[in-house]
Simulated scan of single mutants.
Amino acid sequence: MKQTLKGLTVAAVPATLGILFGIGVILYGINGHKTEEAAAKPEGTKQEQAAGGATSEIGNFVTQNCATCHGQGLKGGFGPKLVGTALDEKAIVDILKNGKGQMPKDLAKGKEEEVAKYLKSLK
């Protein structure tokens, strides 16, 4: 009886781990596709098209560099939401240049003012 129970345990543990690994791969695949779609489709597209190419370039920059921490659509994630922020452009520029909390400095080096204006335009 003890040998049968030991054999069952030895077989059940790897099988259970395999099932859990498979579920993890499936969930990662589902969430990974959503992340890729979000990166390919920046937020604020209508505003960017109306404002022209420069805004579109900054919008793409913001999507690629800020969404990782500030969430899809910049509505909050690890970092605070940027859409509808109460900060003024001067404060945003200061944070972009000097960092704040977990945010490192100089992530938008040379583009701080443009990024600040773009962020304030988001509603």
Rank of each mutant, 00 (worst) to 15 (best):
K97W: 14
L17K: 05
A54S: 12
L20P: 01
S121C: 02
T63M: 12
K111F: 07
N60Q: 10
T63Q: 12
I19M: 09
E114L: 01
L96N: 00
K2H: 14
K100M: 13
G71D: 06
L5V: 05
T4K: 15
I58S: 04
G18V: 02
Y118E: 05
G52T: 00
F61I: 02
I95W: 04
Q47G: 03
M103Y: 09
A12V: 01
G18R: 01
K117G: 05
G101T: 03
K111P: 00
P80M: 00
L5D: 12
G73H: 10
V25K: 07
H70L: 03
A51S: 08
G44E: 10
G22Y: 15
G59S: 05
I30D: 13
C69M: 04
K109Q: 11
G7I: 06
G79Q: 00
G44F: 12
A11F: 15
L82E: 04
L8I: 07
G84S: 12
V13A: 10
A38K: 01
Q47P: 07
V62F: 13
T55Q: 10
A54F: 15
P80F: 06
K123N: 10
N65W: 05
E89N: 09
G24R: 08
V10R: 12
A39I: 03
L82Y: 07
A38V: 02
N65S: 07
V25Y: 14
K46N: 14
I26H: 15
Q102M: 10
E57A: 03
K46F: 14
G101L: 06
Q3T: 02
H33R: 13
L74T: 01
E43Y: 14
A50G: 01
A15L: 11
G53F: 13
S121Y: 12
P80L: 00
Y28I: 01
L96Q: 01
I30R: 12
L107N: 08
L96F: 15
E112W: 13
T63R: 09
A12S: 08
A12M: 08
K120P: 09
T85M: 06
G29H: 00
G110E: 13
H33T: 03
I30V: 07
Y118W: 14
G71C: 05
E89G: 08
K120M: 08
G24K: 05
E57Y: 09
G59K: 02
G24N: 08
L5M: 11
V25C: 09
G24D: 12
A54T: 14
G101E: 07
P80W: 02
G84W: 13
N60F: 13
M103A: 05
L8R: 04
V83E: 11
A54M: 13
G71I: 01
A11C: 12
A38R: 05
T4D: 14
L87A: 07
N65K: 08
L119S: 05
K90W: 14
F61L: 07
I95C: 00
E114D: 11
M1G: 06
A67Q: 04
T9L: 12
L27P: 02
K111V: 01
E48D: 13
K81M: 09
T68E: 15
A15G: 10
E112T: 03
Q64T: 02
V62N: 04
L96D: 02
P42C: 04
A12F: 12
T85W: 13
T4H: 15
Q102G: 00
G7W: 13
E36I: 09
E89D: 12
I30A: 11
K90A: 10
P14L: 10
T68H: 09
K41P: 02
T35N: 06
I58H: 01
G22Q: 08
T16Y: 11
K90E: 13
I26C: 13
